[in-house]
């Protein structure tokens, strides 16, 4: 049975002006989470807040999340102290299938840097060939940079100037490589088109305003192409059927 966990904050630090990084104790989530999955975390506001899992440590029984402050709920959650407890549901969602290929290109933008970090760690642990492209607006927004990653900034004050496409264009692409991308929708669309143009499969992780996170309320839907002819689209649940979708199936 899945359950809602009461978890203790092991550590909390600010990693940029508006982003906190929490390490949370929960052996069950740490041992079962896969990259691309998320947790839904209670705050004093009515609904929980969803966050992609950034890292797990199975020996210490902890997982990490990054919290970008966008409103009252995320502000409050970014302000927790070590030793505080939070109610957490998770791990939720489908996650990336990292067994589907031996070579991956991972691309992150914005808060997508967190789930992509988890995927990068799992892929390198398993010895797979992985190229990481991390796109940021400018140097002040650059977080979780990994050694060897291709860094791009829109402002050009760090790494390659331009979007992550400018970074992707420097990569030697080989057949059978799978692209996984998490970031804002316009960026995922650009990456999806880039991958399609190279004949590569691409998986993206969607973000929607969410309530339950477990698939019962149907508020966080995304559009996918309908199987039935004549039907313009179908709605699927971001939280339960996703958040990871095949780029060729989703309608952005």
């Amino acid at each position: 049975m899945n359950k809602e966990f009461t978890c203790t904050i092991v550590s909390r630090r600010m990693i940029s002006e508006d982003t906190a990084y929490l390490t949370i104790s929960c052996p069950e989530i740490a041992s079962s989470a896969i990259p691309g999955q998320f947790v839904n975390v209670s705050c004093s506001r009515f609904l929980k807040r969803p966050f992609g899992i950034a890292h797990t440590d199975t020996s210490n029984g902890t997982f990490d999340i990054g919290i970008k402050i966008v409103g009252d709920g995320t502000k409050e959650l970014s302000d927790v102290s070590e030793g505080d407890t939070l109610n957490v549901l998770g791990p939720l969602g489908n996650g990336f299938d990292l067994s589907c290929a031996d070579r991956f290109i991972l691309v992150s933008g914005g808060t997508g840097v967190f789930p992509v970090n988890f995927a990068y760690e799992k892929l390198t642990e398993s010895g797979k060939d992985v190229t990481l492209v991390q796109g940021f607006r400018d140097a002040s927004q650059a977080l979780m940079m990994r050694e060897g990653a291709i860094i791009t900034t829109d402002a050009g004050d760090l790494g390659i100037k331009g979007t992550c496409i400018a970074g992707l264009d420097t990569v030697d692409v080989s057949e059978g490589t799978v692209v996984c991308c998490v970031g804002p929708v316009p960026m995922m669309k650009a990456v999806g088109e880039w991958a399609t143009g190279k004949g590569l499969r691409c998986f993206i992780s969607m973000e929607q305003r969410m309530a339950c996170g477990v698939g019962i309320c149907l508020v966080c839907v995304c559009k996918i192409k309908a199987e039935e002819e004549g039907k313009p689209f179908e709605h699927v649940r971001c939280c339960k059927d996703g958040p990871v979708f095949d780029y060729k199936e989703i309608i952005l």
């Binding site: 009515f46 609904l47 109610n87 549901l89 339950c212």
Partner: peptide, 8 residues
């Protein structure tokens, strides 16, 4: 709505 916040 309670189930959406605390499923169990």
């Amino acid at each position: 709505t309670a189930s959406l916040v605390h499923p169990a």
